[in-house]
Design a protein around this nucleic acid. Sequence first.
DNA 1: TGACACCGATGTGTGCAGACATCAATACTC
DNA 2: GAGTATTGATGTCTGCACACATCGGTGTCA
Lengths: 250, 250
Amino acid sequence: MLTNMSTSLHHRAVENLGTRIVGGSLPAGHIMLAEQLEDELKVSRSVVREAVRVLQSLGLVETTKRVGIRVLPPERWNPFDPLVIRWRLAGEGRGAQLRSLAELRSAVEPVAAELAAANAPAELRQELLEVALAMRDAGKAGDVPRFLELDIQFHSLLLSGSGNEMFANLVGQVAETLTGRTVHGLMPDRPRDLTLQWHLDVAEAIFAGNAEDARDAASRIMRRTISEMEPVWVEQPRVFVPLQRRRHSA
Amino acid sequence: MLTNMSTSLHHRAVENLGTRIVGGSLPAGHIMLAEQLEDELKVSRSVVREAVRVLQSLGLVETTKRVGIRVLPPERWNPFDPLVIRWRLAGEGRGAQLRSLAELRSAVEPVAAELAAANAPAELRQELLEVALAMRDAGKAGDVPRFLELDIQFHSLLLSGSGNEMFANLVGQVAETLTGRTVHGLMPDRPRDLTLQWHLDVAEAIFAGNAEDARDAASRIMRRTISEMEPVWVEQPRVFVPLQRRRHSA
DNA sequence: TGACACCGATGTGTGCAGACATCAATACTC
DNA sequence: GAGTATTGATGTCTGCACACATCGGTGTCA
């Protein structure tokens, strides 16, 4: 072992291969041999094997005896896995990934708001309201970093408050899109008054237990968000997978 | 090695541990030792280590030197992974899992319909229309198995037609909920006329490129679906995870 | 005497090397 | 062309060395 630093070899191997596959430099159909990977990554057989097993569970590769380790096409990847999402965001697929996430958000958040209005515990409703108020203050003051932080917190609370663990799990991805939007300079210098008001509307409706209003206000935020972000993914080709048989994975 | 049959040792090890963890017989915080797992599963270290690595990538366990392999609480599991979903559906969490999936569907399908109306290729729109018509026939004839098959095909086409790979990836899970609903005897002997009509409405709106109508009709289907399935998950406690820091996974 | 900081022993995951088993694609035989 | 043998890759097992977090003992100081 030559250079060991803070991250395990396994981790680095997964990261290396995952990035290259998702990034496209290892195209679908490309075949690698375990032994070749040992040489290339300068690690032992066990490290390679454990890494390949993980990539296999993500749907990035499959192994066949007498053939080797075959890179699978994107349709086979698990698009919900945090690793895959991160790798896509870091590479060529960034635009398409941001669009997918934004569309997913636009679908989920209104329903999450609806569920939160019906089910969220009292403290969470209270906190949501406070965050919305703080967002308004930070927004009107033009404090962009603070606003971003509160924005993430708001949408995290919303998703958690739904009581749906799948929704709650999207917190990380939503944070990613929100920061990405700011980093890409897609946010106006000072959040629009309407946006601030809609966030307050969501929080108040949830606080009051009004599911329909919460959903409608959240929908408005999502529509605005989508329209603001569209410039990022213009001309990203959509992929229509022609009714493939889904495996049970493995 | 005593009994080797059709599935690899690795696969069986993952399946064994995954089922037990998700099923609850290995509770959060429980600590296992690699050596102990070798004895228990009657496999070698390499098999155990590769299996543990996969479970780690799913968020089911974490490993710590000098401590062992620790089972993680459900909030840490990746709720979107097909394996985790399958294990949950097979065990105690079945009700809660079905609810989560149904809520996710109810969020996603209307947006998918909207996107399909705007983007789907012509052949897919055509096929969707034909399937909807066939559903009507099978429904009126009271042919339940045929109807289920077409229903799955309809919703699969809808999700694929959105051109969003995350939506498209939900096909398997949606099929699971649809069959589950039928198996659990939650379907009326003969699908309601309104349901059949709404499916046709969705197909026609998408065919005509009318996004709003497609979304509204899909929403109606989803509301009906939720209300029909609610009996399955009555009294399932919701979990509100209190603003936990999401790791970058690994 | 008691509390605390230090430090080494211990045990566990991590990584390595080499062997044999298994199985499917290919080549060969008839 | 069908059946069989070969071959080469992954699958599995094992013994070893290392890194390092934890625990317990020891020494110091108050």
